[in-house]
Simulated scan of single mutants.
Amino acid sequence: MKIRKLHRITAITFAPLFILLGVSGCALLFRKAGFYSKDIKEFLVSIHTWEIIAPYVGGVVGLGLLIVAITGIIIFFKRNA
């Protein structure tokens, strides 16, 4: 499998999970500002850490992010070489 195809498939597959991770992480930046209740904070933390689904899903998403990042860097330097 070519590196571009691996990058594209991985990015498209994991994009919804990356978006969920980013949105929950951005919302958690304001956890000490008192914008939302403790229940919502706990819910956001459980989404962001993947506790609400399954603990190993976070590892899979992390691996997907590493693959997308590494293949993107390889593609960038191959194109500019």
Rank of each mutant, 00 (worst) to 15 (best):
M1H: 07
M1G: 08
K2I: 00
K2L: 00
I3A: 01
I3R: 03
K5Q: 14
L6A: 14
H7G: 05
R8C: 05
I9F: 09
T10P: 04
T10V: 10
A11W: 04
A11P: 04
I12R: 09
I12Q: 03
T13H: 02
T13W: 06
T13R: 01
F14A: 08
F14H: 02
F14P: 02
A15Y: 03
P16Q: 02
L17P: 01
L17H: 01
F18E: 00
F18L: 12
F18N: 04
I19H: 06
G22W: 14
V23G: 01
S24W: 07
S24N: 08
G25F: 03
G25E: 01
G25M: 02
G25I: 02
C26R: 06
C26G: 12
C26E: 09
A27T: 08
A27L: 15
A27S: 15
A27I: 07
A27D: 00
A27K: 04
L28G: 01
L28F: 00
F30A: 13
F30R: 07
R31F: 00
A33W: 05
A33I: 05
A33L: 09
G34S: 04
G34K: 03
G34W: 11
G34Y: 09
G34I: 07
G34H: 09
G34M: 08
F35Y: 13
F35H: 08
F35N: 02
S37D: 15
K38I: 10
K38P: 04
K38E: 13
K38W: 09
D39G: 10
D39N: 12
I40R: 07
K41V: 03
K41W: 09
K41L: 08
E42W: 09
F43V: 12
L44W: 10
L44G: 09
L44H: 07
L44R: 10
L44Q: 10
L44E: 13
L44M: 13
V45R: 10
V45W: 14
S46Y: 13
S46C: 09
I47H: 06
I47A: 09
I47C: 10
H48Y: 12
H48Q: 15
H48D: 13
T49C: 12
T49S: 15
T49D: 13
T49I: 10
T49G: 10
W50Y: 15
E51D: 14
I52P: 01
I52N: 07
I52G: 06
I52M: 11
I53G: 05
A54C: 06
A54M: 03
P55Q: 01
V57A: 14
V57S: 09
G58T: 06
G59Q: 06
G59A: 04
G59V: 00
V60F: 12
V60P: 00
V61I: 12
V61G: 02
V61L: 03
V61C: 03
G62R: 05
G62E: 03
G62H: 05
L63E: 08
G64R: 00
G64T: 07
G64M: 06
L65E: 03
L65K: 00
L66Y: 05
L66S: 12
I67A: 13
I67T: 08
I67S: 08
V68R: 03
V68E: 02
V68C: 09
V68A: 13
A69K: 01
T71P: 09
G72F: 08
G72H: 06
G72M: 10
I73F: 10
I74K: 11
I74F: 08
I74N: 04
I74L: 12
F76H: 14
F76W: 14
F77P: 01
K78E: 15
R79E: 15
A81C: 05
